[in-house]
Computed example of a mutant assay.
Amino acid sequence: MASSPLRDIKAVLFDLDGTLFDREAAVRDVVTRQHAAFSAELAGVPRERFVGRVLELDAHGYGDKSAIYPRLVRELGLSEPLAAALEAHFWDTYARVAPAMPGASSTLAALRGRGQRLGVVTNGRVHVQEAKLRGLDVLRHLDVVLISEREQLRKPDPAIFRRAVERLGVRAEQACYVGDHPVKDVLGARDAGLHAVWIRTPHFAPPAIDHTAVDDLGELLALL
């Protein structure tokens, strides 16, 4: 795909999971802790089997969270009430784990130093996403944070991107959006008139529209 020119950009908006927040590392960490915390209830299920299956059902954040653990305990022949306990433990622990994607904090700080307006547009629940942002210690760099639960809009709806640039006080063509999902992030942002930057990931196929692609956040500094 040909790269979109990033000229006269005055604002940079970011996805959260898989872009600033290393969701894959966080989930693996949480589920590994779960296996240790529930070792008696898991009745000898090997850690690799337990962790691997939860990650598979999670589908990089796009699996139905309410269905993952009920399905898992059925597959493993475990007690049904264990599903609710595992789900509660997941959300309680997940809110306290905050691994950053490489270059996240330094890139935000550098862009802020250049006078760029910065923000986050993310799908998810307010208390979970805000806990991640606090854990990453990036709120001090951000001018706006739009979370789907609070906004009552979800990516890839162009309206949530337009709302973000309005709050930043710039035009859509003066902003770029950085994310890892080819539809929810890249297509959604482009449909709203923003420049789209895709973080390359093995989890998703490349976007089917023109876009700028980077391997890590630090590359943005040479493009903007």
Rank of each mutant, 00 (worst) to 15 (best):
E48R: 15
E48S: 14
E48D: 14
R49I: 10
F50H: 14
V51C: 12
G52Y: 11
R53Y: 10
R53A: 11
L55N: 15
L55P: 15
L55R: 15
A59W: 04
A59P: 09
A59G: 07
H60V: 05
H60L: 01
G61A: 04
G61I: 00
Y62V: 01
Y62E: 02
Y62Q: 07
G63H: 05
K65H: 01
S66G: 04
P70S: 04
R71L: 14
L72W: 08
L72T: 14
V73F: 04
R74Y: 08
E75K: 15
L76S: 12
L76H: 14
L76I: 14
S79K: 09
S79N: 08
E80M: 00
P81Q: 00
P81S: 03
P81A: 02
A83H: 01
A84V: 09
A84Y: 00
A84D: 02
A85Q: 02
L86R: 12
L86N: 08
E87G: 08
A88L: 03
A88D: 04
H89R: 07
F90R: 10
F90V: 07
D92Q: 08
D92W: 02
Y94L: 12
R96E: 00
V97E: 04
A98P: 02
A98W: 01
P99Y: 01
P99L: 07
A100P: 01
M101E: 05
M101T: 07
P102E: 06
G103Y: 01
G103R: 05
A104C: 08
A104P: 01
S105Y: 04
S105F: 02
A109T: 04
A110S: 13
A110Q: 07
A110K: 05
A110H: 02
L111G: 06
R112H: 03
G113K: 02
G113P: 10
R114N: 05
G115I: 06
Q116Y: 12
Q116E: 08
R117L: 14
R117Y: 03
R117M: 11
G119V: 14
G119W: 00
V120R: 08
V121K: 06
V121Q: 14
V121H: 07
T122L: 13
G124H: 03
G124P: 08
R125I: 09
V126C: 07
V126Q: 08
V126G: 05
V128Y: 00
V128G: 11
V128C: 11
Q129G: 12
A131H: 13
L136C: 12
L136F: 11
L136R: 07
D137F: 09
D137V: 15
D137W: 10
V138I: 15
V138T: 10
V138G: 12
V138W: 08
L139A: 12
L139Y: 10
H141S: 10
L146R: 11
I147N: 10
I147A: 13
E149C: 15
R150F: 02
E151M: 15
E151W: 10
E151R: 09
Q152N: 13
L153W: 00
L153Q: 09
L153C: 06
L153F: 08
L153A: 13
R154M: 01
K155C: 03
K155T: 03
P156F: 00
D157V: 09
D157I: 02
D157S: 15
F161M: 02
F161P: 05
F161N: 10
R162A: 07
R163Y: 01
A164P: 15
